[in-house]
Every structure is written in C-alpha cells, then in structure tokens.
Amino acid sequence: MTRLKWGMIGGGEGSQIGPAHRISASLDGHFQLTAAALDIDPERGKSYAVQLGVAEDRAYGNWQEMLAGERDRPDRLDLVTIATPNATHFEISRAFLEAGFHVLCEKPLTMTADEAEQIVAITSETGRICAVNYGYSGYPLVRQMRAMVAEGELGRIRLIKAEFAHGFHADAEEADNPRIRWRYDPEQAGTSAVFADAGIHAFHMACFVAGQTPTELSADFASMVGDRQLEDDAMINIRLSDGALCRLWTSAIAVGRMHGLTLQVFGEKGGLSWQQQHPEQLHWTPLNGRTQILERGDAALSPQAVRASRIPIGHAEGMPVAFANIYHDLAEVLRAKKLGSAADPLALDYPTALDGLWSMRAIEAAAKSAKSGGAWVGM
C-alpha cells in the first residue's frame, strides 16, 4: 500500500496537539509526513520538521512558503492538517482549499459563522474535502451509539445530556498565566471561551450520535474567576431537528473533573451512557430491562464500532486511536477519489466543514442568548 502524502501546519515541538496528530496519522500506515511548517519561529519549525523525517526542501518556515512550494509539485500533498492558533484557521484553510488541497482543520474551523459558510461554499465549488477534527467522534463506542440510534434501538430520542467540564482554569492565581488568559480574551478567542473550546465537542457529539441538527438554543454564561471577559462556565439547552432536547453543561472551573466529556442519550425504548475517561465501555439500558455493559472490541457490536476498533477486547485504546479513525476515514475517501470509485460508506462519518459551520452557528447563538438573559435563539 502506497502511503498518502501528508502535510502539517502548526503542531511543532512542545505542542499539545501536534504529537496526537502525528501518532494518529501514522497509526495505520496510510500517511507519510512529507511537508511541514510547524512553528511560528521559521528556523525552529524547519529544524524540527527535518528531525521528523521531512526532506529539507519540504520543511518550510511558514504556511505561505509551504503553499507556494507545494502548489505546483507533481507529487503534491494528498492532505494538509492545520493545527495552528484558532484565529488563523480560516485564512489557511481557504488558501489551501482554493489551491486544490484536501484539508483537515483543528476545531474551531473558523472564528465566525460567516467564515465557516465561505469554507463550506469553497468545498462545494471545488470538490475538495475539508474535515474538522472533532476527534472524539472517532471512538468506537461513540460510533456504536450512533449506529444504535440510527437502527432505532432506542426508539425516538427524547433527551440528551452532554457534558465537557474540567477544573484546569479554576485557580484565580493562575488567571493571568498567558497560556490561560488568551482563552478569555475576545480579541483572541472570539465570542465564547469554554463553550467554544470544550463544550463544542459535547455539542458536536450530541448531534453526531442523534443524527439530528440543532434548530434553536438557550444559554446561560458565567464568568466566575477574576475579571474574565468571556465565560468559564455555561449551561445550554438545545432543541434538535427531530424533537430531541439536549442539556449541555461545560465548565473550566469544575475542580476535580479531569476531562469530563460524557454523553447520555435517552429514547423511548432505552438509554445509553458513555464517558471519555472510560471509553472502553458503553452502558445500555433497555426500557424496563437491566443495564448491560457493551465492551469495545466485541465482535457483536455494529460494523461501525468493529471497524473503528484496533486492539483486542480487554486492552485499552485511547484518544490517539480515536483521532486515527478520522485519518483512516479520510485515507479511504481520498484513495477512492483517486480511483474514481465510491468510498466505503462506513468511512463517511468523519466531521466535515458543515459540522464546523453548525458549531460556529451554535457558538454565536449561545453568546447572543447569554447576553439576552437566556432567550431562545434560532440557528
């Protein structure tokens, strides 16, 4: 199997997200890191790219150099991952999509819904892929939940309870730490802090599992530490297209919560419960029945979950493998495009620019609702 040529922008040495992408992209042998612009410091970025095995002539000082250097190569890149600061995502994604590259962008896709609409339009016009790394949707048992809902095992979905709450920004003495402060600065973070940063993963997962789109929401934002301009805690109610109601709590001040991404789905015929910190098990309770534990890796799970499992049952997988499922999906779709054939339908669950657009609409609607005392805002 010939590996696909992969480029990366951002995610340099010391980055939090960079190693996760590199591990994930290489896990199945689908991608080879071929070109990179990894750091805001050009020389440091080029040096680190070479250390990672990138040829010197494809180790770039910035994304503009990378675009110019890669645009007309006969051995051009198959996929470009963008893992730069949030405010740069739109400009870089647009430039590479318009130049004919397929893109995987870290979330948020853009800083505004208008920008996200432009990206969706470009993908429609060019036929290029723009995926968004809502990587938690790659967990096998999250895909199991989606499959069970789609097959009608829960009946009509009535209620979803979604959480992404941690306590890493609860220390008032750390409020001015530059690595934390920027998240609550509207000029750098936009209209929302913790909902846009963490809660949006829970929002995407709720819509992904339910197979529904949001119609309106009501939000309450709170800033509890120091003089933060943006929220560090939020409670959001979301009405979905087929009648389900989602209750979403997200927080950065929940002391004792380490990660806190959880999802519970309640339907007419039963309920499901999953936690990212215990991703190997899914609790399933049929109506009037006993709670069962579904184990990741069990061959009796849905084809979606079986396809997403890499390690035998009883051995823990984790976040990089969930991210790897996004890359695995993209590899199958990109190869199908090259061959002019149809991709495996099971490979089509990766988050797209449209998911990024819905997320930006949700962020803007939540900020508007919070400023209006929790008024319901349409999406």
Rank of each mutant, 00 (worst) to 15 (best):
G211P: 05
P286N: 10
H283Y: 05
T84S: 14
L159I: 00
G14I: 10
R257T: 01
N62G: 08
E106C: 15
A210D: 01
G374C: 03
Q32R: 11
Q264P: 00
I129W: 14
G152C: 12
T2R: 14
H201W: 01
S273F: 11
P74L: 09
Y60C: 01
D185T: 03
Q304Y: 14
Q292L: 15
Y134V: 03
V80W: 02
A150T: 10
L67E: 13
A305Y: 04
Q304W: 15
A83M: 15
T291W: 15
G314S: 11
V194Y: 04
A198T: 03
M205L: 14
Y134F: 12
W249T: 06
A362K: 12
E117D: 07
A299Q: 09
L67C: 13
L334T: 14
E187C: 05
H169V: 11
T2E: 11
L159D: 06
I363M: 07
I200Q: 02
R44D: 05
I82S: 02
N86M: 00
A113E: 08
N325T: 07
A147Q: 10
R146Q: 15
A210Q: 00
E56S: 09
G11A: 02
A20G: 03
H169W: 10
S359N: 07
I238M: 12
I119C: 06
G226T: 05
I160D: 01
V225A: 03
E151L: 14
R156C: 06
I313F: 07
R290G: 13
V225H: 01
G12E: 08
Q281P: 00
C105F: 04
G289H: 10
V255K: 13
I200T: 01
R58A: 09
L27T: 12
A336Y: 02
K337R: 12
H30Y: 14
D185R: 03
Q292R: 15
Y48C: 00
D329C: 10
D220N: 08
A370G: 02
D232C: 03
D355G: 04
E280W: 06
P178W: 07
I92D: 02
P74R: 11
P178Q: 11
Q276P: 01
T262I: 00
L282V: 09
P279L: 10
I311Q: 13
R239N: 13
M360A: 12
G199F: 02
D242A: 10
N62V: 08
T191S: 15
R239Q: 14
G260L: 05
A25T: 08
S369V: 12
H259P: 00
L348N: 10
G12H: 09
A347N: 13
Q118M: 05
F195E: 03
L248A: 09
T126P: 04
N237V: 06
E174R: 11
A165Q: 00
I9R: 06
T262A: 03
E216Y: 12
P351K: 07
P345I: 15
P286D: 11
P178I: 08
P286Q: 11
H283A: 00
R71L: 05
G167H: 01
H30S: 14
S241Q: 02
P214T: 13
A210C: 04
G7W: 06
T2N: 12
V80M: 06
R290T: 12
R307N: 00
G155W: 09
A206E: 09
A83H: 05
